[in-house]
Every structure is written in C-alpha cells, then in structure tokens.
Amino acid sequence: MTALGDLPAWAAFLVAFCVLLGAAVTLIGSIGLLRLSNFYARVHAPTLGATLGMVSILLGSAFYFTMLEGRPVVHEILIAVFVTLTTPVTLMLLARAALYRDRTEGSTEVPASEVVEDLIPPGQERPKERMP
C-alpha cells in the first residue's frame, strides 16, 4: 500500500505534522463554506485552505522529497506561487459578479453602486455646500 522510503524519525514527524496541519486547516475552511450564512461571508472561508493549508501541505511534500532523494526538491513552489497569484483574482471576479447580480435584482442587502460623477478626485477636497 504505502511505499514510504527511509527517513530519519524527526523528518517523518515533521512531514506528518505539516500534512496534518494543512489538512485540518483545509477541513475547517470547507466547514466554514458549508455553515456560514450568506455568500459574502462564505467567500472568505475556503481561502483558509487555499493559503495556509496549501502552503503547509506543500512544505511537507517538498521536505519529504528533499530527504528522500538527498537533494533539494523545490518544484512544489510552482504550485504555491501559482495558487497564491490566482486565488485573489478569481475570488475578486466572483464577488464582483455576485455584487452585480444582487444590484441588478434590486437587493437591499448590498450597498448601492456609487455614481462616478459624485466621486471626489484624489487631491481635492469635498466642495462646500453653496447657498443659492
């Protein structure tokens, strides 16, 4: 079943700790996805697994293969960099799409969109109310 190679005891315990920690954090994030009440709360929960869980499991994997092969094996960094770069992009896009859908339906639970002409350009102060 398992084909674990020869590792010193401390390395095995370190890999086991990293993998268990990552899996537990990912499970907590998914339970949050299941139990939180609305979409804007739920969109935060899985990022627990996409950041700390992912980094912890990949560290365990990189350390395991480094000890197993006797040379530095760091190709897990590829996955880590890629997931770290793409997760914010996808979730921002998804949250903007959800906000757009809620506003289009006239939902009162999301803040209304700002009109661009009402925004103050940077460096200017808010104009005083003029009396007619």
Binding site: T2, L4, L7, P8, A9, V15, A16, V19
Partner: peptide
C-alpha cells in the same frame, strides 16, 4: 516513525 507518517497521511 514511518508507521506514524503513514497513518498521518
């Protein structure tokens, strides 16, 4: 230790 690692995984 290796058995523990197997169970942990």
């Amino acid at each position: 230790a290796l058995g523990f690692l197997g169970w942990a995984i």
